[in-house]
């Protein structure tokens, strides 16, 4: 057990941490730059959807009545699940950087389980809403609801596929040096998916 206290500011170990003050542009690894470019394009996708939702909602006062039928408790539980999965993903990256294979396997496994739980809860929620007649064609609000949460769920599914692949590689102890970078990139994507939900939850369920 290490006696050092490791903070978010000093995760250390393994991959060289970037330093905005001393490193030049070339210090950014190409893979990290690539995933941030990808995430920037994803901001446009979800940002455009969210902007459309906000404007349409402002234009149609009747949406408030429709929005009251969503299950905010289920949404809150799912938010907690996804926030926790971000914690386990971050801890997985720290384990990867420290070369702790067993801990990486454990934390990646927990992240996968939490992601699967999120999708399972979402599917249950969809079934409740569809059973009450709130299908994607039930109104503009429900169209937006299923589009935004469905697109987000697809992203969670993609993240699950990547994390599962990394979990298998980590469990077999293969590709260890490269795996650290891959866990970092998968983590960036996973946290982004979490950030998207952080905005979707209050917009759809609370406001």
């Amino acid at each position: 057990m290490s006696s050092s206290v490791e903070t978010v500011d000093s995760p250390g170990l393994g991959i060289a941490a970037p330093n905005a003050q001393t490193d030049g542009l070339r210090a950014i690894p190409r893979g990290r730059m690539g995933i941030w470019w990808f995430l920037a394009s994803e901001i446009m996708v979800f940002g455009g959807l969210i902007a459309s939702f906000v404007l349409e909602r402002a234009a149609h006062g009747g949406w408030t009545a429709q929005a009251e039928h969503v299950h905010w408790v289920i949404g809150a539980i799912n938010t907690l699940v996804l926030l926790t999965s971000s914690l386990t993903m971050a801890l997985g990256l720290r384990a990867a950087r420290a070369g702790e294979q067993r801990r990486l396997v454990t934390f990646l496994g927990l992240t996968i389980l939490l992601g699967a739980a999120f999708l399972g809860i979402k599917a249950f929620e969809y079934s409740l809403e569809i059973a009450r007649g709130f299908t994607p064609l039930a109104g503009l609000f429900w169209g937006f609801y299923y589009t935004m949460t469905g697109l987000h769920a697809l992203h969670v599914l993609g993240g699950l596929a990547v994390n599962s692949t990394l979990w298998v590689l980590a469990a077999r102890g293969r590709l260890w040096p490269r795996l650290q970078h891959r866990v970092e990139f998968a983590g960036l994507y996973w946290h982004f998916v979490d950030v998207v939900w952080i905005f979707l939850f209050p917009l759809i369920y609370l406001t």
Partner: peptide, 8 residues
Amino acid sequence: YMHLKREH
């Protein structure tokens, strides 16, 4: 979690 505060 995404460590943006330490990035370029």
